[in-house]
Structures are given as C-alpha cells and as structure tokens.
Nucleic acid binder design. Structure first.
Lengths: 248, 248
DNA sequence: TTTTATTTTGTACATTTGTACAATATAATT
DNA sequence: AATTATATTGTACAAATGTACAAAATAAAA
C-alpha cells in the first residue's frame, strides 16, 4: 500500500485476464456452430450454477461466462431467468418421466390383473434417478443435486408439480392398489418420504461422509440403491401390516 | 397513458403509504422497549422471510420492515447477513437438541445395558421436530419450513453441521448398537432417509394435498407422526433382517 | 442476387442489496 | 451531575443483477 507499488502493479496491467469475457468472437451468426449447441452449452452451465448457488444465488452473468457466451445470448435463447430455470429442469425431467412410465407399464403388464409388488414400485420409481445420479455423467449428478435443493422450496414445489406430478400420480394409483386398506393420506406420506430420501441420497451434501466414524471404502450407486429400496419397501409394507391389524 | 391522467394520479399523490418506513420513532435509545425485545422481533421476522424467500432471496430491508425496525438495526444487532441467519437457526436448534438429548438419556436409562429399541430411537429423534412444527406455534412451523428448505443446500449443510451434528452422532451411536451387523454406511443411509422424510413432512409444501385425489378431512400432527415413525422404524428393521440373513 | 430472419456482440440502465457512516436520544455508570 | 455506553434513526454508496437496445455478421429464403 506504499506509493511505490503502483508501478509494479502497472507492470502486470497489460495482461488483465479479460475480466470474464469469453474468447472474443465476431458478432453475428457464427459459421460452424449451430444454435442448438449454444443452447445446450447454456443449459449445462445454468444447471451447474443453479445447483451450486440456488435459484436466487445464481447470476445470469456467471451462467453466460461459464457457457462462454455473451450475457444477452442467455436471454435471447431462453427469455427471463425463471424460464431458463424451467427449461433446465424440463430437459432431464422429460427423460426421467419416460424411464419411470415405461418401467411402470412393464410392471403393470407383468402383474396382470393383480397388484404390482410394492418392492417393484419402489425400485421402478427410485432407480432411474439414483442410477442416473450415481453413474459417471456429471450432468445428471448436477441435476440430482439441483433437484434435492429444490425439494422443499416454493419455486421448487411449483416446478416439480409441472414436471413430475403426472408420473407421481400414476405411481400413486398403483401404490394404492398394492396397499389395500391403507388410508390415502398414509400412502401419500409414504410416497413423500420415499421421494425425500431419494433426493437426499443423491444431493451429495457430504453429510453422510462426515457422520461416518471410521473412514470406509468406496460405496457404489447400486449399494446405495439396494439399501434405499429395501428400507422404503419395508416402510410401505409396515403401513399395510398396520392397516390389516387395525381391521380386526 | 394519455396526457390527462397525471392530474388524476397527482390527486392521490398526497397519500403515498410511507414507502416501507416503520412507524416513525425518535432516534436514540428508546424508553420502554428492551434490546432483547427488538432482537426477538428481528429474529422472528428474519425466520419468516428466510423461510419464504430462501437465504439469497431474503432482503435485509424486508426483514427490517417486517420487524418494524430501521435497516441498520439489523446489522447493529446481528452483524452481517450470514450471522443473522446462523442466529435464527441457533435459537431453536438449541431447544431441539436439548429435547432430543434428554429423550435419548431417558431411553438409555430405560434400556439398561441392552440396545434401545429402534422404534424408540426413531420416535425420540423425530417427534420433537414433528410435534413442534405441527402444533399451533407459527414460529416453529416457520422454522420447520426453513429447515426443510435448507436441507440439501451447501450453506444449509454447513449450518446443520454446526448445530445438529453432535446430536446426530449421539443417536447414530445408539442406532449402531441397535442394528448389530448392519454396515456403517447403511445405518447412516437409513438415518439420512429418516431425517429427509421428517423435514419433507414438516416443510408443508402443499404437495401431499395436491397429490391426494379425493379431498379428505383434517390430519392431525400425531397421525403424521405415527405413520412416519412406523414407516421409518420398519425401514431400519429391514436393514437388520437383511444383515442377519446375509450372515448365513 | 436481393431480402429477410437468425444469432451473436457490446453497451447501458434502473433496481435491488449488503454494508457503512454520522447524528441523536435514552440508559447506565461513576 | 457528568460522562460513557447503548440503541436507534436517517442517509449514502458501491457492487451486483435482470432486462433491454442498437449494431453486426452470417444463414436462409425469395
């Protein structure tokens, strides 16, 4: 902070890493790059930053910088912030819903006229998410963290309603059939518990590692999945048992 | 938008509700009010607004307005935003931890040398939170919503570590004892599932009501609690059963 | 080939937000 | 009674942020 330092600072001033400006390109429609590539880059960056900082904490400038795109390109492609957010969620929720619905369809076909086994319902709903989040793909991992973060917030609830309620309803109908005698509210509470546990598992907060006393070896996604499925299935079955006992 | 309207607008301009200024008071240390009262009012308002808007979404100005206090009073009493947030959490987490630890102590005494029943552990951990959130007190309800919101975020994880990990460790030690043969990672995964379900239940997002097909009657906090305890207890017991079967 | 549409750059702006400063009046202490 | 500490008001400010506008260059269409 003396009077001498400025000259030293100035010596480096010729190479100020362009504040956050992406590799300078010419304005106008670019030659090789398709619009879809740019859009995907923006969505990937937005997914990452929304997951890290939350909806309100995320700055569109940071998204643009991470996507190596000019700020206005974000608004141009996706409109206002909330629309970008919705698009980020929609991209993968569509895939997730498809996986779940086709699994449900197969389970329904296999069960014939009878109820689908509870364990099958639990596994079919949970596994697409847990396995996507657990496998290598960093995009899905980020998405899972984002969904976990969203879980109990008003905005999150609204978005989850838009993108996940249809599938949830389809599964709930089967859960009800597989849990005869269990009151509606309990079925839903069980389903909510299952979803909450699933999201918590995949959010990857680091708390489990912190709470573990001795350092343990690697834990595979399928280990996590199996434990979760067993745990939640037993929970549902307890509701069923209790309902049957209360009939008498 | 015509040229005539301004006069009409001006007609109302004499009563602009003081933008957001609280009932004007004289500067200086006030007569009747103690500093603790002011602090409590600020904490209540902050709790509410953090729960509604999230940490980043909450504006200290709104907190001050809701507490009917000048903006600077917030910083004066609690320092920077993050310190205020931490104080909001600390206030009730201290009570919560006390309730849980004394319940655990009683359970330990009742169990003598043997393991505490799993159902007891689950109920003792869950019920202080669920009942506090479910009873009339709006402050606890707000707090529960806030905790749910925090659950899977980085800041939330950090704060939860500071205020809840000690109690969690104490319970985990007993869970381990009551679940002999179950691998550490599974015990923790079960515990995490339990906590996630608990938070989700109390966050009061409105999703359960939305997913319920027919409109049903009122559901008491104890109904919710009983179902949750049964569900989670059965989950833990399934881990135990599985571990025993795998021994053979 | 001319014209229109698309996609990108660069800049600007009004608003919001966390933090800080100066002033003031009451309470507490000496 | 005088002085110091405390709690509050009112104002200010720099930084960050979402959105918008004008210009430009390429692609697509006529």
């Amino acid at each position: 902070m003396t009077e001498n330092t400025p000259s030293l600072e100035n010596a480096f001033e010729e190479t100020p890493p362009p504040p956050q400006r992406p590799a300078r390109r010419k304005p106008g429609r670019p030659k090789g790059i398709s619009s879809d590539e740019t859009r995907a880059r923006i969505l990937d960056a937005a997914e990452r930053i929304f997951a890290d900082e939350g909806y309100d904490g995320a700055a569109l400038r940071d998204v643009a910088a991470a996507a190596e795109v000019q700020l206005h390109a974000v608004g141009y492609h996706f409109g206002p912030k909330e629309a970008l957010f919705d698009t980020v969620i929609a991209r993968r929720s569509a895939i997730m819903s498809e996986l779940r619905m086709s699994a449900l369809k197969a389970a329904r076909a296999a069960a014939g006229a009878g109820p689908i086994p509870i364990g099958t319902l639990v596994r079919d709903y949970i596994s697409p998410f847990v396995l996507s989040a657990g496998r290598g793909d960093p995009g899905w991992r980020t998405y899972a963290a984002l969904m976990g973060r969203l879980a109990n917030s008003p905005l999150g609830t609204e978005i989850i309603a838009r993108h996940y309620d249809a599938t949830a309803r389809a599964y709930l109908e089967e859960f009800r059939r597989s849990l005869p005698g269990v009151v509606e509210a309990d079925v839903i509470e069980g389903f909510s518990a299952m979803v909450a546990a699933m999201l918590g598992l995949c959010a990857d907060t680091g708390r489990p590692e912190r709470l573990a006393e001795g350092a343990r070896g690697h834990r595979s996604p399928t280990d996590n999945l199996d434990t979760l499925v067993n745990f939640q299935t037993a929970g549902f079955q307890a509701l069923l048992t209790l309902a049957k006992n209360q009939e008498d």
